[in-house]
Design a binder for these strands. Structure first.
Length: 572
RNA sequence: GCACCAGUAGCUUAGUUGGAUAGAGUGUUCGGCUACGAACCGGAAGGUCGGGGGUUCGAAUCCCUCCUGGUGCACCA
């Protein structure tokens, strides 16, 4: 597609001695379309040129007037205060957008990622613990980033770095040893294991000896003890079976399920490298890296005083492994902001591993806010968690009730209720900036009106409905662009024009909510258009143009929603 | 105590590489289904952008300071 901003920048560049690249950064989009489609603020030149901004604007305008007249993409340029406001040629915009829609099978697909390798570490639930609503954000944020990087032409590797190792397993093993026969873990694995986990934790609090026995169990597990390893495998397999039920509902996919345990034989190398740097110190019986010089007060523990490893060591081994296996340009870690310090530490220690600069620079913690209950933090140990499966089932149930009420004759209600209910939950989690905490509230998450997933789905369903009624989709080359230059149509077209730019912004900030907001804007624009205009009407040319616009809007809504992990029903 | 993050309408929030009159949704309220799906659309009311200072032609945005809330701070992950 033609890049209007760049066209304007190159015209201004000829009239000034500012570089085109710099100009594209300065050129902005006015909030109010009265002020044109693009604007160049002259204020920043005032000091340098020692002239008032409107004077500068006027001078530039005189210099570029001839070029503007010649450029068929730009209609005119006007001065408003210190701004130069550019008005693009509407029919050019219409033609460009419709052409792009017609030629792309998957709208937004490009190769700007140039096959660069992006490793995304996300979801990562803990084995033997409930998969609760706190794990949803990592799963859906990581999943959305995965798809968005992919459509932009990156080579993406999704890793589910399962929490399948550590002292928690020592605890479970100890609990199972003590009371295993009291619980039926085959029948209801996670709930029964959770009971054991809570019980053993309480005992650990009372009795230091038990805690040490647990730590010892983990040590044994690391050393390949048969009893411990068999139990660990059993817990892991049973848990994974349950997790997969949730992943099936969310349609989450991973390229690798290598959890923490996978790195158990890869840590000696990390310790060896760190030993050689001379930075690994003994402290209180443990081996640590002191990071005070890097401005981090808390040292990074590489090996505990009993000789077993930590989360940090495993993450370092993972960095080493992933750099070799995937040759990553970026390695994203999608976890809650509680782990900010942890990642600061290991990214700092990673500099000591002798890796190429590219790998170190590629490490990035994509942190997000917490899901809190109205009463405060969720805790498996306290037993006050809301399980993801319960939330998803409730969402599907509520969607079904609404379908019964609004569209009782709908076919395959089950499947559509699933799409709508889960779409609502996913969108809710992706709608706000990552950094925001979220107070869990059933009615907020399962609201289907306003800025929600179902609103986007509903808008899409209406486009499908119109197309069905029309019975045809006209050929793009037969559309008369002058039929789509009204305010409502242009609003949609401008948004569609922006789609790829939005996807790029998402990857720059690793912030899927930018796409969520965009889809709301697009759905609103189409809804207004729909409300204001008859699409199927007497004027055949007008009808063709509007049907094609409907088709285009639907295509982009669907493409965008799918990138967020939301399915689009054809009816609802 | 130290560090990091957040504070925008009753509630949830967008806008934070400084730029034109701070935008939405929700709730409240008024209006719109005998023509394409009302899970929708349009209007109204609702803002000391946490407080105070500063920088600037211009600050929700940058700097300082204070207040409030959250998170983290060595053998959990």
């Amino acid at each position: 597609m033609k890049n209007f901003k760049q066209i304007i920048a190159s015209i201004i560049a000829k009239a000034t001695n500012i570089k085109e690249q710099e100009l594209t950064d300065y050129i902005e989009k006015p909030k109010d379309t009265k002020n044109g489609d693009y604007a160049f603020p002259c204020f920043r030149l005032a000091k340098e040129l020692k002239k008032a901004p409107p004077v500068i604007a006027n001078e530039i305008k005189e210099k570029i007037e001839k070029d503007i007249e010649q450029a068929k993409e730009i209609d005119k340029v006007e001065i408003a205060g210190g701004y130069l406001n550019f008005y693009i040629n509407k029919e050019t915009l219409v033609t460009e957008v419709l052409n792009e829609i017609a030629k792309s099978e998957e709208y937004g697909k490009s190769d700007i990622g140039n096959g660069k390798n992006i490793v995304i570490d996300y979801s990562a639930p803990n084995i033997a613990k409930p998969f609760h609503i706190g794990h949803l954000r990592s799963t859906v944020i990581g999943g959305a980033l995965y798809k968005i990087y992919k459509i932009l032409g990156y080579n993406v590797i999704g890793i589910n770095h399962l929490g399948d190792y550590g002292t928690q397993f020592g605890k479970l093993i100890e609990g199972y040893k003590l009371w295993g026969n009291e619980y039926d873990i085959e029948k209801d694995p996670i709930n029964e294991l959770t009971k054991i986990y809570i019980r053993i934790n309480n005992l650990c609090k009372e009795d230091e000896n038990v805690l040490n026995a647990c730590r010892d169990n983990f040590k044994k597990l690391e050393n390949g003890d048969k009893y411990c390893t068999e139990l660990w495998e059993k817990f892991r397999n049973l848990s994974l079976q349950e997790f997969k039920k949730v992943y099936d509902l969310l349609e989450s996919k991973f390229d690798s399920w290598n959890g923490e345990a996978f790195y158990s034989d890869k840590m000696p190398e990390v310790i060896e490298i760190l030993e050689k740097t001379g930075k690994l110190q003994e402290s209180q019986g443990a081996k640590i890296i002191n990071l005070e010089e890097q401005g981090i007060d808390t040292p990074c523990i590489i090996e505990k005083s009993n000789g077993s490893t930590t989360y940090a060591t495993r993450d370092l081994a993972a960095i080493l492994y992933r750099s070799r296996k995937y040759d990553f340009d970026k390695a994203l870690y999608v976890t809650s902001y509680e782990q900010i310090l942890h990642f600061k530490q290991i990214f700092e220690v990673a500099k000591l591993l002798g890796l190429k600069e590219k790998y170190i620079k590629g490490l990035e913690h994509v942190s997000f806010g917490m899901v809190l209950l109205p009463t405060g933090k969720m805790s498996t140990r306290e037993g006050n968690v809301i399980k993801l499966q319960d939330l998803l089932n409730e969402a599907i149930q509520r969607a079904k009730e609404i379908i019964e009420q609004k569209n009782p004759n709908l076919e395959n209600k089950e499947e559509i209720a699933k799409q709508v209910g889960i779409g609502a939950v996913i969108f809710n989690d992706l709608a706000n900036s990552r950094v925001k905490d979220e107070i869990f509230d059933w009615d907020t998450i399962l609201n289907f009106q306003g800025e929600t997933g179902p609103y986007i789905q509903y808008t899409y369903v209406r486009t499908k409905s119109v197309l069905k009624k029309a019975g045809y989709i006209p050929k793009e080359k037969d559309i008369k662009p002058d039929k789509l230059v009204d305010e409502y149509s242009l609003q949609i077209l401008k948004l569609i024009y922006d789609f790829q730019e939005i996807l790029i912004q998402v990857t720059e900030k690793n912030e899927p909510s930018i796409l969520s907001r965009y889809l709301i804007e697009l759905a609103k624009a189409y809804s207004s258009f729909y409300n204001e205009n008859r699409i199927i009407c007497e004027d055949k040319q007008l009808q063709d143009a509007r049907i094609y616009l409907t088709y285009a809007a639907g295509k982009v809504l669907k493409s965008g929603a799918n990138l967020l992990g939301i399915n689009m029903p054809n009816e609802m």
